[in-house]
Design a protein around this nucleic acid. Sequence first.
DNA 1: CGACACATGTAACACGTTACATGATTTG
DNA 2: CAAATCATGTAACGTGTTACATGTGTCG
Lengths: 172, 172
Amino acid sequence: MLQDEPRYGYQLKTEFESATGGVWPLNVGQVYTTLDRLERDGFVSMEVGDDEQKLYTITVKGVGELGDWWEAVPADDPPPRDELMLKVLMAIEHGPEHALGVLTRQRSALTSLLQIRRRERTPLDRSPDSSPPTGEALAARLVTDALIVRAEADLRWLEVCEARITAGAGPR
Amino acid sequence: MLQDEPRYGYQLKTEFESATGGVWPLNVGQVYTTLDRLERDGFVSMEVGDDEQKLYTITVKGVGELGDWWEAVPADDPPPRDELMLKVLMAIEHGPEHALGVLTRQRSALTSLLQIRRRERTPLDRSPDSSPPTGEALAARLVTDALIVRAEADLRWLEVCEARITAGAGPR
DNA sequence: CGACACATGTAACACGTTACATGATTTG
DNA sequence: CAAATCATGTAACGTGTTACATGTGTCG
């Protein structure tokens, strides 16, 4: 956001929340601690205006870092410790029976969660001439879409796991 | 793991790594700090054997907590702060042109990453009578599967984002 | 005999996060 | 005038993570 133009701390909070469709509430305090740390590392600089309020500006170093961030694809080596994966792997370690129990429970929980999310997904593109969503509505919609797509992926993965486990444990 | 039977700290490290197919290396030090914290919270208890070595046992309280964990589906409210989502939403905030650039770059990066992973996926189920993978091999395979499925989901999502943005910015 | 696995820990840091405290300005 | 919004911060905590230090046993 600072790349756009300098901002106040509080402003960053409100704009962040509107940019993310209100799904990610942000404690203001965290904005200030983060800004302090960014300043410590030389990524932003701060100046106090006549009104005692603090304007934060991104530095050259900060712009460079940001450029890298825009390009970077979220790292994967080692793969991020994911709770679901961990849970399934540990369940397997615990024995196939236990693993199957955990898997089916996770699967049914995820299925109903998915249905809820599909229903929650704002159905705003009914008529063909309705204007596409913008701003906060768009952001909220995209987040929901992402959560749905990810849940579907997890579900598919759980099915793969079940298949592999029954294949390994059943007919042997 | 402790639910199975009491273990040494070092043992937890090695077993964790083998249970996760070697994809998640674990600093031993972390095992001990974590065990200390678990003991502090009353989830495990420790006793020193005659050989000066420390055996960690799960407590009743710990078993209860673990039971909850097995059942729980990874929380989602508010949705986890995800780097990719954040990046896309911030790119949109920055303007459609910038967003499209970021999106296509992310998409191509993810596509090639996906191809690499698909190739890396150990093709061990060639012959129909080969025994299914077990232990470490199974774990490693499942992790790869998960990463692939998730990457596919991210890719689909990126396409949805592109569609919505071009629909919102192009013909308007 | 030297390297490696086994085994245990400590100190320190960064980061995300929250609870709390304070004051100015705007608006119903 | 009271409540909400704007605006700024601090102290503290928990956790993930690493670097470092130390010692025993075993095996080629």
